[in-house]
Nucleic acid binder design. Structure first.
Lengths: 342, 342
DNA sequence: CTGAAAGCGCTTACAG
DNA sequence: CTGAAAGCGCTTACAG
């Protein structure tokens, strides 16, 4: 039957406190005794009871801090939903939370918010980091101070942290390339790729994935232009407008980032007879609308809800039970959605 | 701060036991008192602590029964993984389990297994049901006896039960239709649809979804044949072989069920110059291999892992905390995968 | 370094 | 119908 700490204690002829200390590698146990206890626990097949552990830890409540660069960016709506759902669940287990949202991927603001949360004594942090050295250094400091950090949606390089939950952006580019290829049906196609900025790692990676795949497998597809719209709809509008005038042979536009609304407006206005195919990334309200009406053919998604949810859940489990995910990189799925599978 | 049952009891001037009984609608409380307690708890913002609840319930252990029609069907591998993962989690919360796997969607076998699990005193059941009247009746009996039932992957009609976790098969067909449409790039295409059996509701629905979408939006695509292979590879091989001889104009084959291996073998053998496009459903090892090698262009997935995982989790949460899912139908996502996003 | 004991919040068998 | 109390399994402050 069920093996509890009590059975282990009896078998080892020590108190339950000592078993607990030994099994959880807490200080203050004779190493020999500890080793013996661990062995006995193992033989008995002892598995800690999460509910009891959680309950006992209620006396020493922990707080999860969350910082999202989400303000004014509709993509993050689903990430936020995921975060909130997981935080609510953690609430049932007595974990508190503080959430901060900032506008843009602004390193200085981010650092200020991190310090703010540290002042509030958070026990762990979930964050969409800016991939800059000073942010990396700050995250290193947190990890060193035993405050685990989980990055979501976008990662930070060169700092070991508890986990990253998000998609692989190069693969995400390859999928777009493959999709463009499939949709060409072997015929000649001329595509334009619209990104936000090649200075953002995720977007540069996507671009790379697309180009690589087209080059390798679809010589019938020519990339006519790569445009950076700074994720700005007005700019996107003007650029796409100019592009369509300049390149009448264009058959497809792929939006690898934001600025979809402006871009589509330009396409709509200039459409005179020919039908441009549009593919996008992610599933914002704008994209959803345009998929339904047939303006956008397909969009490539990355499970934003799950990014938020898992990010918080992984941190929460670590704080509650000390369990780490098997891999520190948790990839969310990339998949293609059409009007039918939103 | 944190409101516990104790605070509610003090505010209401009753014992904690009475608060518990009132809040959980257990019998044996004066209705007026109960109402007052519920109101006070609400005002105080009382939220039950799941860990404590779980721990307290340890004394009255529950067992989840699982019956899967999965034997010899590789699609179910991921469903099984999901089931096992969730069962392990439930184990931490003191819920036991009994799992039975049977071969084929065989109603009589299924009924026998259900009775077997009932004899083992299961508290709830997760099942891939056969949609037949006698199975429906048996599930009704379980629900009446307060043994909640969750169906996964395929549902049973006309019986109210705790939940169904799986995809919407008509939509799943529409997605294939849309995919075929996208891949045609407006050119004339001739497709064959291969299903297992139109007697299986899921497959009949998929077929319907595909045909509907093609008819409405893609008049350039002609369905040349619909073939039933009984999910048998040998049969599939022979039928596809004959088909290819008979219909040299064929450009695409869509496998809406099993028998992919046999079908692909036939395609391979007969390929003389022309390149047939193949699309499939789900992500078995065979499909994965053929996607990677470029033989299969795309496959339409339905989150099998999640079907298993959520099915068990929903039942477990109901048994532990009495919480029901918001909707009794929990749809898993349908998405398109290419060689890059497996 | 080790043990005895209190406590986390909820549930239910038992007594009244 | 209601209350007092034991107990679920683990953790840690305290005493030794």
């Amino acid at each position: 039957m069920k093996v509890t700490i009590r059975e282990v204690a009896e078998a080892a002829n020590v108190s339950r406190g000592t078993v607990d200390r030994a099994l959880n590698h807490r200080p203050g146990v004779n190493p020999q005794v500890a080793e013996r206890i661990i062995k006995i626990a193992d033989e008995l097949g002892y598995k800690p009871d999460m509910a009891a552990r959680t309950l006992a830890n209620k006396r020493y409540t922990k707080t999860i801090g969350v910082i999202l660069c989400s303000e004014g960016n509709p993509f993050f709506n689903d990430v936020i939903n995921g975060v909130n759902n997981a935080l609510e669940e953690m609430g049932h287990f007595g974990i508190q939370n503080i959430v901060r949202k900032i506008k843009g991927f602004d390193a200085d603001l981010l650092l200020k918010e991190i310090d703010g949360l540290l002042a509030e004594k958070i026990s762990g942090l979930v964050i969409t980091p800016v991939n800059s050295p000073n942010v990396a250094q700050k995250i290193q400091e947190l990890e060193d101070a035993n405050i685990p950090v989980v990055t979501i949606n976008t990662d930070i390089s060169s700092v070991k942290h508890l986990a990253y939950v998000g998609c692989d952006y190069i693969t995400s580019g390859c999928v777009a390339g493959e999709l463009l290829g499939m949709m060409s049906n072997g015929f000649e196609e001329h595509v334009a790729l619209i990104i936000g900025s090649s200075m953002v790692m995720a977007q540069e990676q996507r671009l790379r994935g697309i180009k690589k795949t087209l080059k390798r497998d679809y010589s019938n597809i020519t990339v006519e232009a790569v445009i950076e719209n700074d994720d700005d709809d007005q700019k996107s509008y003007e650029q796409v407008k100019a592009l369509l005038k300049e390149k009448p042979e264009l058959t497809t536009i792929c939006f690898a980032s934001a600025g979809v609304e402006g871009g589509i407006k330009a396409v709509r206005e200039s459409e005179c007879g020919r039908k441009l195919r549009i593919i996008t990334y992610d599933l914002t309200d704008i994209v959803r609308e345009n998929l339904k009406s047939g303006v956008v053919s397909a969009t490539i998604c990355q499970e934003p809800f799950r990014q938020g949810f898992l990010g918080v859940e992984i941190l929460g489990r670590y704080l509650l039970y000390g369990t780490k995910p098997k891999e520190s990189t948790v990839k969310t799925h990339i998949f293609i959605a059409t009007k039918y599978n939103l």
